[in-house]
Structures are given as structure tokens and as C-alpha cells.
Write a protein that binds this DNA or RNA. Structure first.
Lengths: 157, 157
DNA sequence: TATTGTTATACTCTATAACTATA
DNA sequence: TATAGTTATAGAGTATAACAATA
């Protein structure tokens, strides 16, 4: 059985890589290095900041759903980011119970800088790949990640 | 500027996928589902069990280095796995200070089953890809993961 | 004096429940 | 009665320091 046509050998390598990537030391190092120097942002609050930038001004509950994080955790981390001057809380005009979270100008700048740092690192690695391969890789990784996360959503819903 | 030849667009998508993959909810769901039903194994102890299977019988310190985990955490999780009957501790014949960790037969079976579950899921997804693409993807992901983890190793060493 | 394994301590993160205000 | 936001509590994970035994 040839290696190039045997899917299970590749699957094992992908499983090992995912294991290494999700290992605490790797994550902490990756995001810790990335966010060091930005007040209020670390590996735990980064998803809130990044998610808010992606989905735009929203309520805490909707943001929590969007980033796959608990409501209570989201609101607590939002407080930290607010104290650091990166996000604002304003009453939702459509619902007096709700609060709309939004990035401040400083928050926008922080997100832009953090994303640029991460993306430039990846882009540097991917620049050496054959033309078109980066786009294919990105698509495969996106779909694989969705499948892995989806399995969980199926279970709890 | 075309999308297919612009590396930064792909880099942004890869960055987002890595963010989703390393998110706590995704990790917890993925490994929690995987290890449920195996006594003593969860998302935190799995790296110890899996790492021991990969590098073979070793001392706790060497295993800790191999899996990028703290010595104190490794020995504590090893105790849990030992209590569950999955690993054994034996004196190292070459160094009276050291202890050799090794999988029991039950531990071997647990690792085999857990890996098979993870790999079969990935293999199923990858089976639909064009021939050869799985191997390329595995190689790219391996190298990218190494680079991301390496950046951290460079920093602390 | 350095290293191995381990335990103790304090600290952070997370999950569950409970509370207030509004729908 | 249900939902949004928030806070309180307890539990789990982690890092740092310290210890005894051996190199």
C-alpha cells in the first residue's frame, strides 16, 4: 500500500499536528508572544477582542455564541478589555435589557496590529509554497476545523 | 490583485482557523468527546498518555520535555493515569533518582483506541480529497505547527 | 552543586448557580 | 415566564517554590 494514496497515514500525521497545536504550551506561547505588550489582552481575552472585530458591535450573548464561549466568561473578559480602554459598553436602543459591545479606536488599532503580526508570520511561511497551494490549504483547514467543532455542536444541540 | 495568488488572504483564513481550533470550547469538545468513557483520561491527561506511547518508556522529565509540558504537571497527571491502571512507574536501572514511566497493556489498548477514533474521523474527511492532497496537507500542517511552536522555544531558550 | 521526582502553595481559569432588570 | 447582563461561589488547572534523594 503506497503512502501517498493511503489516507490513514496522513490522518495520523494531521492528528499529531492538531495535538501539538492545541497543547497548552504551544497555545500559551503563540498567543502570549503575540499579545505581550498590549494592556488587557492575553490568550484568554483575545478571542473576545478578535470576535468583536469580526462580527461588529453586538450584544454580549450574541458575541458569546459567535466565538463559542460562555456568556459569563465573555462578559467578564469584556470588562477587562473595557478597563483597558479597548471596548465600550452602550445600551442597546432596541432592547433595554441588552448592552452593545463595540471596539474603541484603540481597540481597533490593537486588533489590527495583533492580526497583522499573526498573519505576517503565516504569510512568510506560506510565501515559499507553490502558487495556489496556500488557498487550497486554507480551505482544507477551514473545513476540517468546522467539522471538528461541528461534531461538538451536534452533541450539545 | 488576485485572491489565489495573494498569500495574505490565505494567511488570514489560516489564522482564523487556528484561532477556532485552539479555542477552549473546540478543544474541550474534541478531546472530551474522544476520551469520554476511558477512566483517568481527559483532555489534560491525554497528552501524557499519547506522548508516552509515542516516545516509549522514559523518565518523567524527558517525557515532559517531549510533550512540552511542565515536569510537575506531568508527574501529577502520570499519577492519575497510574491510578487508572494505564501506566506504571518503575525505578530507572541507570539512575536511582529517576523513574521510568511505561504504558500497561490496558494503557496500550486505550491509546490505540483513542488514536483510532481520532484518525478515522480525519481519514473520513480526507478520503474525499483529490489523490495526494492529504499527504501534502499533512506535511504543510506539520511544518506550520513546528514553526509556530519553534518560535516559542527560541524565545525561552 | 546540580538534577530527578514529588509535593505544597498560591493564583488563574472555568462552570454553575443566583440575582436584577426588562421583555 | 423567559431573557440579557452580571456577579458569587466553588471547582479544576497551572506555575512557582520547596523538599528529599541521588548524581
Amino acid at each position: 500500500m503506497s503512502e501517498t494514496t493511503n489516507g490513514s497515514a496522513s490522518a495520523a500525521r494531521v492528528a499529531a499536528a492538531i495535538g501539538a497545536l492545541t497543547l497548552r504550551a504551544t497555545r500559551a506561547g503563540l498567543y502570549g508572544r503575540l499579545t505581550s505588550g498590549v494592556e488587557g489582552v492575553d490568550a484568554t481575552t483575545y478571542p473576545v477582542l478578535s470576535g468583536l472585530a469580526r462580527v461588529g458591535p453586538v450584544t454580549a450573548t450574541k458575541l458569546a455564541d459567535a466565538i463559542g464561549m460562555d456568556r459569563t466568561v465573555t462578559t467578564r473578559y469584556a470588562t477587562r478589555l473595557q478597563e483597558a480602554g479597548l471596548i465600550t459598553r452602550r445600551p442597546d436602543p432596541a432592547d433595554a435589557r441588552a448592552t452593545r459591545l463595540a471596539l474603541t479606536d484603540e481597540g481597533e488599532r490593537a486588533v489590527t496590529a495583533l492580526r497583522a503580526a499573526m498573519e505576517s508570520f503565516l504569510a512568510e511561511e506560506m510565501a515559499t509554497w507553490p502558487p495556489g497551494e496556500a488557498a487550497t490549504f486554507a480551505m482544507r483547514l477551514e473545513r476540517l476545523t468546522e467539522s471538528l467543532a461541528q461534531g461538538e455542536a451536534d452533541r450539545s444541540g
